[in-house]
Design a binder for these strands. Structure first.
Length: 402
DNA sequence: CGAGATTCATGTGAAGTATACCTTTAGGCTTAA
DNA sequence: AAGCCTAAAGGTATACTTCACATGAATCTCGTA
């Protein structure tokens, strides 16, 4: 009985055609051939990098603009095309893309260089070598390879925030160490003010040329969504107005195209799970909530245990009393919790740094204030809407085996 | 009443420690001549 | 004797601790109007 039910379910599942034709198209890793409303920027990038084909050194390039404005996409697009030409014409050119935000990959000077060296096929250890040594290995390996190297550093602001701008200084000076090769840097930043806070020497050399990526407006987002949904969904599976709704929602938040695409994809997934014939507008509303939740719980779940504990403490305090939360309170609760879990509590000094990190990740808001006579502390408030907190708390307690 | 001193609770920087990992080196063992 | 393996020595990066000093506005103090 049961067995045949299950068989039937699977058979039905197979027979029933899903809404998606090709879901990959909506994922952020996908690079479409056609990038609407970025023709100008792509052309600019291409003309900046073109000298590399003649084995001349292109200027360093700096791209900035809010998240989801197509910076990464445009660069990768140009990269692909450029690589194609250069390999067919046998030009000595290599292009590397590296996202500096990835933890344990490129968030310190050592790790950044080590990752780069690894991309050149060098087998370098994750720790133990002097940083100079890593530089030497890296320089050596690229110097014999090819004439031109273009290094794309995505989310470069994150790197500087964590590890200081000395790295960039070292990097820009790298060219003087190289005999046969030249490195061109392409920096990408979401933070518009980032370049201004840099050491002037670094700034001038890194931003020889810069391109601003403006935010998309709702109409442009619609174009993008239409373009992609044609490939992603089967015909006539989207309710009239659904795409417009996606575009409008995403446009409300500074025109983030990635968000718009996520919205559409998750809505499609939800619709499919509900066995709905079409992607309806209501699915998009649900998708918005889900994305928010998933995004946060994704970050939270990859946090180190200690940070999770700190976060849980702040959430608990936030629930218990709706007054302001201060560092000292968090630390006391954290200490109690950590002994419950059987984790050795960190010092308050360290926790202070952890709170600062959580703030940087945008999971909480922590602001240093002075309470005058009553000392100085961080005042912590929530960035997450109250309705989402119980869910995340549940996840936290699970991960922490509480 | 108001300017300046005081105070508190913690921020923050620097230096030190523990841990995990790396390379080099020297000793001991095996092996082939 | 040459070659190979192993373990110790000496080095680094990273996460964390310890120590000590810095902060900055509410509150206190005290001289002055």
């Amino acid at each position: 009985m049961v067995k045949s039910d299950i068989n039937k379910f699977f058979e039905n599942y197979l027979e029933k055609k899903g809404l998606f034709e090709d879901k990959k198209v909506l994922q952020s890793s996908y690079t479409p051939n056609n990038i609407p409303h970025r023709e100008k920027e792509i052309k600019e990038i291409a003309s900046m990098m073109a000298p590399a084909l003649r084995e001349e050194k292109p200027s360093n390039l700096f791209l900035y603009g809010k998240t989801g404005t197509g910076k990464t996409l445009s660069v990768l697009h140009v990269k692909e095309k450029l690589e194609k030409v250069s390999t067919s014409k046998k030009v000595g050119l290599k292009i590397f893309y590296l996202n500096c935000k990835l933890k344990k990959v490129a968030d310190t000077e050592y790790r950044l260089i080590a990752t780069l060296a690894r991309q050149f096929g060098q087998n370098v250890p994750i720790t133990g070598l002097p940083t100079d040594e890593i530089y030497r290995i890296f320089i050596e390996s690229i110097d014999k390879e090819s004439k031109n190297i273009i290094l794309i550093l995505d989310e470069i602001d994150q790197l500087v925030k964590k590890a200081g701008d000395e790295i960039l200084y070292n990097l820009t000076r790298l060219n003087s160490e190289l005999k046969n090769t030249q490195i061109t840097f392409v920096g990408i930043s979401n933070d518009l003010r980032f370049a201004n806070d840099l050491d002037p020497r670094v700034k001038s050399s890194l931003t020889e040329e810069d391109i601003n990526f403006p935010s998309y407006n709702a109409l442009q987002l619609q174009d993008i969504l239409n373009e992609r949904s044609k490939k992603a969904f089967r015909e006539k599976t989207i309710e009239q107005g659904a795409i417009e709704k996606c575009a409008a929602l995403a446009a409300r938040e500074h025109g983030d195209a990635r968000r718009a695409l996520d919205l559409l994809r998750v809505a499609g997934e939800l619709a499919e799970r509900e066995n709905s014939e079409k992607l309806l507008i209501k699915h998009i509303d649900k998708a918005e909530e889900k994305i928010e939740r998933d995004l946060i719980s994704d970050v939270v779940s990859t946090l180190p245990k200690q940070s999770q504990l700190v976060l849980l403490s702040t959430f608990n305090l936030h629930d218990k009393m709706n007054s302001k939360i201060f560092t000292g309170d968090v630390y006391n609760l954290y200490k109690k919790l950590s002994s419950d879990v059987g984790l050795k509590p960190l010092t308050q000094r360290r926790m202070s740094d952890l709170i600062a990190e959580l703030d940087m990740l945008g999971i909480i808001n922590a602001r240093v204030i002075s309470k005058g006579r009553y000392g100085r502390t961080r005042e912590i408030s929530m960035t997450i809407p109250d309705s989402e907190i119980p869910d995340i708390k549940e996840g936290l307690t699970k991960w922490l085996n509480l």
